[in-house]
Design a protein around this nucleic acid. Structure first.
Length: 799
RNA sequence: GCGGAUGUGGCGGAAAUGGUAGACGCGUCGGUCUUAGAAGCCGAUUCUCAAUGAGUGCAGGUUCAAUUCCUGUCAUCCGCACCA
């Protein structure tokens, strides 16, 4: 019988759909399991071969849980707002809604062809007004709780297209589309105060099970540092505040630096004799794009302030102040104390401007480079700190500064507030209204959804406003507070908005009264296992955790963390070992693979290709092995015999154990290898009985569901194997009777002997003594030592 | 520069706690079947000068024993980018 994957896969996909096999409801009589994969952006290109890697892995988990009796929620949907769709719409004059609909149709049929056990009745779409009503609702709550505010911000501005660009659209400092210069332009933007949650976003990571690199990426991105704010008196008669993580090096602060945007430049304008030079420098710095700034990282520039100096509060020495763009206005206080001996950047700057370098921590060679180590150094040239280790010095100086009123302990973060406005059409309208009298006002919640109006053109306007700004009928409205004339916000939300809470909507996607019912949220949340790309470790993960924490605070959900467990798959590279891309022509289309090998083979191959978390290279040669394995499995029904050999029975129990444990560790590749080994053993034994073929079918079902359903039916069942019990193993039967013991002399392998499991050292040595090849090797040597590792190694050390 | 990985046969990759390196798969070679071939099936397959040999990027070290631990070093990939 030939393995007819096309017929089999079609047949079972239809049956699952027809019987609504994977549809779930809240059922408190069963334990729940919420398995989640990142919902895709339905691009025009369709799915690529990387998508099924993540989806199949979590599908295997979901299917295994179902077979273990869990009520499994495994949903799918569309993160459909976004720039590529909008750009496609602009170029081809098609409404983004239509573009989205077409792309979703294509994605859906592709996903269904993989045999993934999604509950399609819960499909969601972030661009559906019934969905984004709640995105807007959450925004309104953030606004009402003071977590949304408007701020003047520098944005990317393309000088040729005259539009605001998202960071993703700026490539090497130029516009992605026209390649002309991109400059920074100040615009008023909506911001979300994610920084208010910075501590919790770090600290609560201790309560979740994320793979280490994801945790680290989040922690580094948030970038919490402990230090102190210190005030330096200046000759202008005021105080200049700096932030430092190294207050212990205060005695070594030989100059100060303020950022070009620092407000004191204006404040000190009349005292600065070289004010014009400073302004010229500031303008020069403003003109530099991000690209130029990073290009010039190595080369420090700056201007010394003439007319104002500062006093080092512990040495009482007068020190100069510089303005330089290596100090950022957006971090700390926008001003630093420079300690060239112990900070690499200050060291470079001091070398260039010939500034004094005073060593205050002994242990390095400051002739050569800054000594930044905080573990080993001892304080010198530092008055009352002399002789202390860095950590103690830090404590002592911080206390001293507090007592004298010149400094306070301070924690800073690299994390910035979230820029939440986009001057774009294809996004959720921000549900706020501006009234001259009352300021920014939320629209009444009863008026949600504030739907995206139909516009003539999706192009951003000349002055960088969203296309919605031209819709005067829509823009002009009344103030919900005073009833006077008011204007709607025309900016829309970023693509990240819809994906920041979608996992909540899946719990109860049709609910029209609330984002999801309390009952559904309490039952399904938190997500038990969330898998997704490493590229989302910082942005999407932080944004959605932030929203979830906020929703916890306002008592919408009752878990402090939305995701219990987070894992991440490796990328799949093209056959040439390079990232798949259209321009390189190395893209593998999953449709082609399914057509020539079938979905089960594709699934199995993607799981077998290598360690799930590592990047893997596609091989159209190797995939044949996965197909062969399934063909061999298919033929097992022709190899039935009355009784399975004991050795095969034992092999089964060992394999079930390995597969069971490996799935939990996402070691799918070794789980499949174990099943292949078992298959070889069965072939060597000439077959197996019906019972064990059923066991094999249930064990393989999560990996290759179609062929297993077919086998299950062939074996006389009329229910789905997808809901049969996952096999369990008998620990006793996993044990083997005999052990192969490696015999070594001086650690070198000399041979292997077979002994009963649990043989004593004396027994093993007796056998060795009776074995010719070992006695020959030991002849004339003195045995110094014998090392016996139970059932594994017998090493004889000789002289 | 900082942070995170990775380096094992011709290839993809296996090897809790240090304990027979190369599981499993691809490829290759041989056998079987066949008029012949393909597909199956069975077997072999780290290397070489075939040994008391060498071997997990390279150089050392600890150990009876190292892919695994330690020190140094090289290479590749991915993030971040002057965060004081």
């Amino acid at each position: 019988m030939k393995y007819d994957y096309k017929a089999i896969e079609k047949k079972w996909q239809d049956k699952w759909e027809e019987k609504k096999a994977f549809r779930v409801e809240v059922d408190k009589s069963k334990p729940k399991y919420y398995a989640l994969v990142e919902f895709p952006y339905p691009s025009g290109a369709g799915l690529h071969v990387g998508h099924p890697r993540s989806y199949t892995a979590v599908d295997i988990i979901a299917r295994k849980r179902r077979m273990q009796g869990y009520n499994v929620l495994f949903p799918m949907g569309w993160d459909a707002f976004g720039l590529p769709t909008e750009n496609f719409a602009i170029k081809n004059h098609i409404h983004p809604k239509i573009v989205t609909k077409d792309n979703v149709a294509r994605f859906t049929s592709q996903l269904k062809s993989f045999g993934l056990s999604f509950d399609w009745s819960r499909e969601i779409d972030t661009t559906d007004p019934n969905y984004y009503k709640w995105t807007q609702w959450i925004f309104l709550q953030l606004f009402k709780h003071g977590l949304a505010y408007k701020k003047e911000m520098a944005v990317n501005w393309c000088t040729s297209c005259k539009v605001v660009l998202a960071n993703e659209e700026v490539v090497n400092g130029t516009c992605e589309r026209c390649h002309s210069e991109v400059i920074r332009k100040v615009k008023s933007q909506w911001m979300l105060k994610i920084t208010e949650y910075a501590d919790r976003l770090i600290d609560d990571l201790e309560t979740v099970d994320y793979i280490e690199r994801v945790k680290l990426a989040e922690i580094n991105w948030i970038g919490r540092s402990y230090g102190a704010d210190v005030d330096f008196t200046t000759t202008a008669g005021d105080k200049l505040r700096v932030y430092t993580t190294r207050p212990d090096t205060l005695f070594g602060a030989t100059y100060m630096v303020i950022s070009p945007e620092h407000p004191y430049i204006e404040k000190w304008a009349d005292k600065l004799t070289n004010y014009n030079d400073i302004i010229a420098y500031r303008e020069e710095a403003a003109k530099k794009s991000d690209f130029e700034r990073t290009e010039l990282v190595k080369d420090k520039t700056g201007v010394k302030l003439e007319g104002v100096t500062a006093i080092n509060p512990v040495t009482n020495e007068e020190i100069p102040i510089f303005v330089s763009d290596y100090v950022l206005i957006t971090y700390g206080t926008g001003a630093i104390m420079a300690v060239p001996a112990h900070d690499t950047r200050d060291f470079e700057f001091a070398k260039k401007f010939n500034l004094p370098i005073v060593e205050v921590v002994a242990g390095g060679n400051i002739e050569e480079e800054a000594f930044t180590d905080v573990e080993t150094g001892v304080m010198i040239n530092s008055g009352f700190l002399n002789g202390l280790e860095v950590k103690e010095a830090k404590k002592k100086i911080t206390e001293y500064l507090s007592e004298k009123g010149i400094g306070t302990p301070k924690i800073n973060f690299k994390l910035r507030d979230w820029v939440f406005s986009r001057q774009r059409y294809w996004g959720e309208p921000i549900p706020l209204v501006y009234c001259e009298k009352c300021g920014w006002q939320p629209i009444p919640e009863s008026e949600l959804t504030l739907t995206l109006p139909e516009v003539e053109s999706y192009e951003p306007t000349d002055n960088g406003e969203s296309p919605l700004a031209n819709m005067t009928d829509w823009v002009n409205t009344t103030c919900p507070k005073c009833g006077g004339a008011a204007k709607r916000e025309t900016d829309t939300m970023p693509q990240w908005a819809g994906s920041s809470w979608y996992f909540l909507r899946y719990c109860d996607p049709k609910n029209s009264d609330f984002l999801a019912s309390k009952e559904a949220l309490d039952y399904w949340m938190p997500v038990d296992w969330y898998n997704g790309g490493m590229e989302h470790a910082t942005l999407h993960m932080l944004y959605s955790r932030f929203w979830a924490k906020f929703l916890y605070d306002i008592k919408v959900i009752n878990c402090i963390e939305p995701y219990k467990k987070r894992t991440s798959q490796g990328m799949i590279l093209g056959e040439d070992g390079e990232k798949m891309s259209k321009s390189r022509g190395n893209v593998i289309n999953p449709d082609d693979i399914i057509n020539s090998y079938g979905a089960d083979t594709l699934r199995l191959y993607e799981m077998f290709v290598g360690d799930f978390e590592k990047t893997a290279t596609w091989s159209s040669q190797s995939i044949k092995g996965s197909k062969r394995f399934l063909e061999r499995f298919d033929s097992l029904s022709d190899m039935l015999k009355d009784k399975t050999d004991l050795s095969i029975e034992q092999a089964f129990h060992r394999t079930i154990k390995k597969v069971t444990l490996d799935i939990e560790d996402m070691k799918f590749n070794t789980a499949i290898a174990a099943m292949m080994s078992l298959m070889n053993d069965i072939y060597n034994a000439g077959g197996l009985d019906k019972h064990y073929l059923e066991v094999f079918t249930r064990m393989l079902a999560p990996f290759a569901p179609h062929i297993c359903e077919e086998m299950w039916e062939r074996l006389g069942h009329n229910d789905f194997v997808s809901f049969a019990a996952f096999p369990e193993y008998d620990e006793e039967l996993t044990k083997v009777a005999s052990a192969e013991i490696a015999v070594q002399i001086n650690g070198k392998l000399k041979g292997v002997i077979t002994m009963n499991v649990g043989s004593s050292e004396a027994d093993v040595f007796t056998v060795i003594g009776k074995t010719e090849k070992f006695t020959a090797a030991l002849e004339g040597k003195t045995i110094v030592k014998k090392i016996y590792i139970q059932d594994k190694i017998f090493n004889i050390v000789v002289r």
